Amino acid sequence: MEASFKQDNKLNKAERYQTFLTQFAPLIEGEKNEISVLANACAALKEAFDFFWVGFYLVHNGELHLGPFQGSVACYRIKKGRGVCGTAWSEAQTQVVPDVDQFPGHIACSSLSRSEIVVPIIVNGEVKGVLDIDSDQLNTFDETDRIYLEKVVGLLIRELYSPQ
């Protein structure tokens, strides 16, 4: 399988996400190996949007543990309620942070990270993990990112965690 997720820069952000979703859905369709699917999700998102860091943290033994990612080295574990990822987990809702230095308790895995979005993966009312995306620029993420990245996570939930 060869797939390119590079997006046409002439498209606006919503159009780029729409194109991404039409490419991404068939990539993961029918795949059930969590690590494999999440690894390809990271690669596809990084290629499509050139994000600074894209990865997953998965709930394990009462903490978020580092899962598949693309980018520089990252924190291994995050406690519930700590940092942007831990807050998304404890509140079970997406966190959009325009300036990570202004976020109380931000965990700086990389000093180059400037803004961040974290989308929880919620299955049957329980957070199973989070999709974490960082930018090396301020104010990168907005409502459009929230809407479409929640759709990406929705596709992942449907493929990985829904009985079929």
Rank of each mutant, 00 (worst) to 15 (best):
I157P: 00
C85G: 08
L21D: 08
C75S: 01
M1E: 15
L66A: 09
I35C: 07
E29Q: 14
K151F: 02
S115Q: 06
I28K: 03
G86N: 09
V127S: 05
V127Y: 07
P104K: 04
A108L: 09
D50L: 13
K13H: 12
R114M: 09
N124E: 13
V130S: 08
F20S: 01
G71Q: 08
G55E: 08
K79F: 14
N40V: 08
L131N: 05
D134V: 03
E116N: 03
Q164A: 06
P120W: 08
I147E: 05
E159S: 09
W53V: 07
R82L: 14
V97C: 03
L149V: 08
N33M: 12
G105H: 05
Q137G: 03
I78E: 05
S111I: 13
A44D: 13
V96S: 00
D145S: 04
D50Q: 13
L155N: 05
L58S: 03
W53C: 07
T140H: 10
P98V: 00
D145G: 06
L45N: 13
E63S: 09
P163F: 14
D8G: 09
L66Y: 12
L64N: 02
V37T: 04
D136I: 00
A3C: 11
W89R: 00
G154M: 10
P68I: 00
D99I: 03
K151E: 06
V84L: 08
K151T: 02
F5Y: 11
W89A: 05
G125M: 13
L156D: 03
L66K: 06
S113K: 00
D50W: 13
R146E: 14
H60T: 09
E2F: 15
G81I: 02
P120C: 11
Q93E: 15
F69H: 00
L156G: 01
K128Q: 12
Y161P: 03
G62T: 02
D136N: 14
I121E: 15
S162M: 11
P163I: 14
N33Q: 15
N33V: 13
C75A: 02
S162C: 11
L156S: 01
I147L: 15
A43F: 13
P68W: 01
A14K: 15
V59G: 00
D8E: 14
Q93F: 03
K10N: 14
K128N: 07
S135N: 12
P120K: 02
S115F: 10
E63N: 12
K128S: 06
R16E: 15
N40Y: 09
Q102D: 05
N12M: 04
V100W: 12
G129P: 04
